[in-house]
Simulated scan of single mutants.
Amino acid sequence: MNNQQYPQQPGWGGPQQPYGQPPFQPQPPKKRGVGKFIGLGCLGIVGLFVLIAVIAAVAGGGSKSKSSGSGHTTTVSSPSKGQKAATQPKRKVVTFKVWGTAPAGALGGLDITYGSDSDTRKGTFKNGEFEATLPFHKDALFYTVSAQLQGSGDINCSVTVDGHTKKGHASGGYNICDAQLNAGLLGDWD
């Protein structure tokens, strides 16, 4: 028989912990996460950029500078709340034109249509010319003007959007003068 005695734990019959030792192992100290440090560093960098942007907006909020080709800078002051702007911004318009000689044929006078991809209108040719305007809509895909001769004549047509103009020409017979400007991907018209 083995003469070793094991201290008994009350009620369990197993070995008893030596006096002064806790009944369980203490938890190891928490490790500092590198991720928390990196996260706070990134947040600080983003905060710095936001702070710089706010300071730049406050510093440059009172005036706008325009540079001309000759190297001179012109400063344009914004009106304060108490002042009214001297001129209201002009609404953009689209201009449609047809001009030339187009005698009425067997089917009547010159047949003119103009408008955009969502708005088509009829026009009347008087005294060798036609001109109409429509409000500019930034969502339009294209603006067009079309004029068909009725047996003879020589005509030109144009459509102008935001300073860009397309022209067309037709001569003789039942030919069609057509001019169309299309909206580009970047908001330019061609």
Rank of each mutant, 00 (worst) to 15 (best):
L48R: 00
K64Q: 14
V159C: 08
F37V: 15
P79H: 04
K36R: 09
A56R: 01
G153L: 03
P135D: 15
N2P: 13
M1F: 11
T160Y: 03
G61N: 13
S70G: 07
T101V: 13
G33M: 04
G39R: 01
L134K: 03
G39W: 01
L51P: 06
W12G: 09
S116G: 06
W12Q: 11
P26R: 00
Q83P: 14
L181V: 15
Q25E: 11
V58P: 03
G69D: 14
T120C: 07
A132G: 05
P29H: 01
G20D: 10
E129P: 04
S152L: 02
A140F: 08
K167M: 12
G62I: 02
G105Y: 07
D119T: 06
K97L: 14
G11W: 04
V34A: 07
I45W: 06
F96W: 04
D139M: 02
G109L: 07
L43C: 09
P7K: 00
Y143L: 04
T160L: 02
A86Y: 13
V93D: 13
V54N: 06
Q148A: 12
V46I: 14
S158N: 08
E131Y: 00
G105R: 00
L149D: 14
A183D: 11
Q83W: 13
E131F: 02
L149H: 02
F125G: 08
D162V: 11
I176Y: 04
D119N: 07
Q25K: 01
N3R: 00
P135L: 08
S68A: 12
T101A: 05
L141V: 10
G151H: 01
N156Q: 11
T101W: 05
F49I: 12
A104E: 14
K126C: 05
Q25V: 09
L186A: 11
V46L: 13
H72P: 10
Q148F: 01
P28Y: 08
W99D: 14
P135I: 11
G82V: 13
G11M: 05
F130I: 06
G105W: 08
V76Q: 10
A102R: 00
Y19R: 05
G11T: 02
Q180S: 13
F136N: 05
Q148M: 08
T165A: 02
T73W: 08
G60P: 07
D119S: 12
Q17E: 15
N175W: 02
K122H: 15
K66V: 15
G35W: 04
A59N: 01
W99L: 05
T95V: 15
S68V: 12
G100C: 06
D139Y: 03
M1G: 11
S77V: 13
G33E: 15
I176C: 11
D188K: 00
G151R: 00
G47M: 06
Y143S: 04
V94M: 01
E129A: 12
G123V: 07
N3T: 07
G41C: 08
